[in-house]
């Protein structure tokens, strides 16, 4: 049986690479903004490039936050990529303007503290050993291109729920959240679809988990 994945099309950038990379990882990919299709696929991938505010606007237009919420309520997997990862936090701040995100996680996405921005290129990720997302990727690098990130992880678990697996990367000396595995909600600040074979292994780990 093939695994159905919806790649949410809300007018954000290059979807072709993500579509190809996911289908290479074994998924039967549909690129659409259709509410029912997006709610019911085995997996939903939420891409995103550009500004946080513009992405939230595009997402709201297709009822993206509601799609994500419904899926998570039913335990159905969602994968956020780049700005699609950022919008899962409570808030984004760009040029001093605050924009509400989907609020699946507490915390703010803000400008990295670095001399050279955007943070552009292949960087290492510090993933905990128990990570399922990074299984089999060794110490390979992943492709990042962004100026903003979540620089703290603020979700506190009290031991009664399973703690999320949070992976980190560092640009110059600023450390930020590179990836999160939180039950059915996974997200990466980097672009697995542009990260060569290492990215392919990661996407395949996600598709196999569906």
């Amino acid at each position: 049986m093939t695994t159905t994945v919806t790649l949410l099309d809300y007018g954000s950038g290059n979807l072709r690479s993500a579509e190809r990379a996911l289908s290479r990882a074994g998924a039967d990919v549909t690129v659409t903004a259709d509410f029912e299709v997006a709610c019911n696929a085995a997996g939903l991938a939420v891409p995103g490039v550009g500004a946080f505010a513009a992405c939230m606007q595009g997402l709201r237009r297709v009822r993206g936050p509601e799609i994500i919420g419904r899926r998570l309520a039913g335990g159905r997997p969602v994968l956020g990529i780049c700005v699609g990862h950022q919008v899962l936090f409570e808030m984004g701040v760009e040029h001093g303007v605050e924009t509400a995100g989907c609020g699946e996680w507490p915390g703010t996405v803000e400008l990295l503290d670095a001399h050279v921005l955007p943070h552009s290129g292949w960087n290492t990720v510090d993933a905990p050993a128990e990570s399922r997302m990074f299984a089999g990727t060794g110490d390979e690098r992943f492709y990042f291109v962004h100026s903003y990130a979540a620089r703290r992880w603020e979700l506190v678990t009290d031991g009664r729920t399973r703690a999320p697996t949070v992976s980190w990367a560092t640009h110059e000396s600023d450390r930020f959240v590179a990836a999160v595995e939180n039950g059915p909600l996974w997200a990466t600040q980097f672009h697995p679809e542009k990260s060569g074979d290492a990215g392919a292994v990661l996407l395949s780990n996600w598709v196999k988990s569906l």
């Binding site: 990882a25 292949w122 690098r141 074979d197 290492a198 395949s204």
Partner: peptide
């Protein structure tokens, strides 16, 4: 620098990528 391809072909094929 990024040293790609440290993974063997066998490992990549184990992930069952489709071309």
């Amino acid at each position: 620098v990024r040293i790609a391809g440290k993974r063997s072909d066998a490992e990549v094929s184990r992930t069952q990528l489709r071309d």
